[in-house]
């Protein structure tokens, strides 16, 4: 194809000419807003008040409340996580000590940290041993952990992260992505998720299958807990 001299030029010119008529990639920003993923929280930024002072009071609550510990404060490199800098380290060193104390397990009287409560790590350790501490089995580990506790306690997730070597952010990301996982204990009378509700596309697929086979409505799976992914399908 490239044996004819000049054929490359002709093909290149044809390509740019086609591009001339194709839809453009530019987003006219102020009028057109790009679609942002629902989980995107944007860039971490400290705000100033009308007098130009920082609104941040160095309370470290954001770093404490961040479920996947992606917020950290100060100028110290923290394993590639996002840092929020606003000044030299000595200006907030005291608060930093305090936050480190909290993270080390000091009980914090705040509802936001209830899920950080200690749990018995025996069941999750057994699950991890059964899976040989392999982070590639994360889905199975999480499902069996939830079967053991009824939900996924934060302490168990941290232990999984510690034992398998996977980043806590990845463990939490996996746990919060799939719908069969819950991060808080189920309320009384809260029905377990039906198998068809676990993944959104599965429901439509199953109903289409039922319609094609002429079957009636599917019986609700009785008391199935959400850890039976390996079990037989209804």
């Amino acid at each position: 194809m490239s044996t004819v001299p000049g054929s490359g030029i002709v093909r290149g010119m044809a390509l740019t000419f086609r591009r001339f008529f194709e839809p453009k990639a530019t987003v006219r920003y102020p009028e057109v807003r790009p679609e942002i993923a629902p989980r995107n929280r944007g860039r971490l930024q400290l705000l100033h008040d009308e007098n130009g002072h920082l609104k941040c009071e160095t309370c470290f609550q954001c770093a404490q409340a961040c479920p996947i510990e992606c917020i950290d404060m100060g100028g110290v490199d923290t394993r590639g996580r996002y840092n929020v800098h606003w000044g030299p380290a000595e200006t907030y060193g005291e608060r930093r000590e305090e936050a480190a104390l909290r993270r080390s397990g000091r009980p914090v009287p705040d509802a936001a940290f209830a899920s950080f409560a200690e749990v018995d790590l025996g069941p999750v350790s057994a699950v991890l041993v059964a899976h040989d501490h392999d982070p590639a089995h994360m889905l199975g580990i999480l499902e069996e952990t939830q079967a053991a506790y009824g939900y996924l306690p934060v302490a168990a997730l941290r232990h999984i992260s510690f034992a398998t070597g996977a980043w806590y952010a990845m463990v939490y990301g996996t746990a919060s992505y799939y719908r069969q996982f819950r991060l808080a204990p189920p309320a009384d009378g809260d029905p377990a998720l039906a198998a068809a509700d676990r993944r959104p596309s599965e429901a439509s697929f199953l109903s289409a299958l039922d319609a094609a086979l002429g079957m009636g409505p599917r019986p609700a799976p009785g008391n199935a807990r959400t850890g039976d992914a390996a079990g037989p399908r209804a």
Partner: peptide
Amino acid sequence: KVIARMNLRI
């Protein structure tokens, strides 16, 4: 304008 359009810009 023409080069922009050929670069898929506006």
